[in-house]
């Protein structure tokens, strides 16, 4: 139904004048310097499904031109979607950020 479907449709973009960055900035993230999720790009290199890229609600998995995946843990909702949709052993090492860090919801 999405009439904005573009080829690939993989990069988040603006809606109603709001960029994806602005959308993410509405939530508060108390960032910890140690990543709580680690993605092993070598395992991703020959992954054809790339489900994490479309499914992560924070769009934290970004495919690179060389066919790898760049991951940034900073604006993560800690939802679990990525490790659930990924079916490659060892690609994602998932845990929670240190207590008190990470996303803080207010009106949810």
């Amino acid at each position: 139904m999405s009439d904005t479907a573009r080829g690939g449709m993989l990069e988040p973009h603006a809606w109603g004048g709001l960029s994806f960055q602005e959308r993410m900035a509405t939530a508060e993230f108390r960032i910890h310097h140690t990543p709580h999720i680690v993605v092993d790009g070598r395992v991703c290199a020959d992954c054809s499904t790339r489900e994490c890229v479309v499914a992560c609600p924070a769009a934290l998995f970004v495919p690179t031109a060389e066919g790898g995946i760049v991951f940034n843990h900073e604006q993560c909702f800690e939802c679990g979607t990525c490790y659930l949709v990924c079916n490659r052993e060892g690609a994602i090492t998932w845990s929670y950020p240190e207590g008190g860090h990470g996303v803080v919801f207010r009106r949810t």
Binding site: Q21, M24, A25, E28, F29, I31, E74, Q75
Partner: peptide, 10 residues
């Protein structure tokens, strides 16, 4: 406004 970490600009 409260300080927050923002992604790199476009």
């Amino acid at each position: 406004p409260r300080a927050m970490a923002l992604a790199a600009p476009d």
